[in-house]
Design a protein around this nucleic acid. Structure first.
Length: 117
DNA sequence: TTGCTGACCGACG
DNA sequence: CCGTCGGCCAGCA
């Protein structure tokens, strides 16, 4: 039976929640998989965040997955973009310095949902 | 159904 | 510094 649909601004589904958080990343900022996982309560579930990103292309809404990197500021997921250089290109277009697939001053551009939200 | 993999992270030796 | 292991959970053969 159709019970109360809790579809509010916050969707309780992990994947959808990940997408929403990623979309909230400000322009010119980046975050890490672990930070998102931690924010969602899946402290060790950073892999799931990456998995969600992999499925992000299926979403109608565009997901700025290029703003999500690993905790080292390394563009670990760039190989999943097309072309792979797209991720780096997007970041650079937002004023982020990327050297050798690594974000320069990563901590300076880091956006922590635990703090910002 | 089981078992393995995956855009990760942290701990241990 | 490097290799290895456990944890988290979804998708697929």
């Amino acid at each position: 039976m159709a019970k109360t649909i809790k579809l509010s601004e916050e969707n309780k589904d992990f994947f959808d929640h990940v997408y929403q958080v990623v979309r909230l990343i400000p322009h010119g900022r980046v975050t890490s998989y672990g930070a998102i996982a931690n924010y969602l309560g899946r402290k060790g579930g950073a892999r799931m965040v990456g998995w969600a990103m992999n499925a992000s292309h299926t979403q109608t809404e565009q997901v700025p997955a290029h703003r999500v990197v690993n905790r080292l500021g390394l563009l670990s997921g760039k190989a999943h973009f097309s072309p792979p250089d797209m991720m780096e290109k997007q970041l650079i277009a937002e004023g982020i310095v990327v050297i050798d697939d690594q974000i320069h001053d990563f901590k300076n551009h880091f956006w922590n949902p635990l703090v910002e939200l």
